[in-house]
Design a protein around this nucleic acid. Structure first.
Lengths: 213, 213
DNA sequence: ACCCGTTTAAAACATTTGTTTCATTTCCGC
DNA sequence: GCGGAAATGAAACAAATGTTTTAAACGGGT
């Protein structure tokens, strides 16, 4: 973190500040102070505040790396793939270790997208979503439309995202100490996986087609 | 909307602006301009910008009213209760009619809570969550802990919230025209209801207990 | 008709914010 | 060691923003 390269320090500090305050509320002075750099440094190295922000988002989802085990061990069942997928996703959602402004920034971008959003979807969210799509294709009846698969995918990720995006509400709803127990990746991931598998495996495109209207 | 009471107009405009731009990015001048009022009006009627914001949030979840049909017709099955619950929730999530800044503001408050959040949970979200809890208690095995019921409740609402909070990402993921088809309350609500019912009804606290670790 | 509290209007104020300027320092090839 | 480009630091600038001030307009009660 405390590297001697001011540009790197700037990027790091900016990420933190943007993540916790948002683009508007974050001030370049605050960023520079944390980076122990001069106010002019931002404009010198990045042009302006917005380009610095975009650079932060880029770095955020580059550093995120590890795009899930795409080459599953031979013979992995669809169930286990889904279990791993949800497991990794929940591991991200519940991860609090600092500095993890990367995720926080991406979450913020997802919640109220700026121009950095499109690129984020293309290079990070999209591929993950495609993997989930593939897993669900394995688990669902073949005849099902892509549209129906998408609905199921949304059902899976929706359950996961809740735990990060609405954490404060969750805490207030079920109480501090119980919510603390939900801060357990394996517990929650296993619930979501089972819940989703039941939701998926009962689907029969013949006997219970999705409504069409 | 265009009442002759400037204070009411101010509240209305402020709601819209706060909802679409957030607290920081919203400017008093913008609010006053929409309300066709003077810049000083905000400070005169509300003290300062923050108190105006709080007043907006209060009005938002007061006007929201209609806390779902609590007295179901006799003989309503748990399934149908869940269907109605999800239906109303999705109706809220997908509602775009203006002025519905009420919901947008509440959503924003849920995403990154300010001091107005706690009251919001107590008077609006909490009761709804309690209703869902009751419905799930009907549908789930009796022996299940409250904690497990909460996990299931989160699974249901998580699916719903996705369609409002991550709409832009959804659009980018599945394409504009397909996502437009998801802007159909009955289609999505029916999917979520069925998905959840399958996820719920397969639960047996004996044969497949929730993991405990 | 007059007064007085309330409300609105316009201008000004003080502060903050992103950005720029310019002088100074640092760093690296020659 | 030197020269010049790159980087840094301090101050200043211009624009925007929340807030305050001051004066004018309005409305009802006597």
């Amino acid at each position: 973190m405390n590297t001697d390269d001011p540009k790197a320090r700037l990027l790091e500090s900016a990420g933190e500040v943007f993540a916790e305050k948002g683009f508007e509320a974050a001030t370049v002075r605050d960023i520079c102070q944390r980076a122990e750099a001069n106010v002019a440094a931002v404009n010198y190295h990045f042009g302006d505040k917005q380009q610095l922000y975009i650079e932060c988002v880029k770095q955020a989802h580059c550093a995120q790396g590890e795009p899930i085990e795409i080459d599953w061990p031979a013979g992995t069942t669809g169930e286990d793939k889904l279990r791993m997928f949800v497991g990794q996703m929940m591991s991200d959602m519940l991860n609090d270790e600092r500095p993890t402004w990367h995720l926080a920034l991406m979450m913020r971008e997802m919640a109220q997208p700026t121009q950095a959003c499109e690129e984020l979807v293309k290079s990070f969210i999209g591929p993950k979503f495609a993997i989930l799509h593939g897993i669900l294709r394995e688990l669902l009846p073949n005849e099902l439309s892509d549209e129906s698969v998408h609905l199921h995918a949304f059902s899976v990720v929706g359950q996961c995202l809740l735990y990060r995006f609405h954490r404060p509400i969750g805490q207030l709803l079920v109480g501090e100490e119980q919510f603390q127990r939900f801060h357990n990746v394996e517990l929650v991931a296993e619930h979501i996986t089972r819940f989703s598998l039941r939701g998926i495996c009962g689907v029969s495109s013949v006997t219970a087609p999705e409504p069409t209207l």
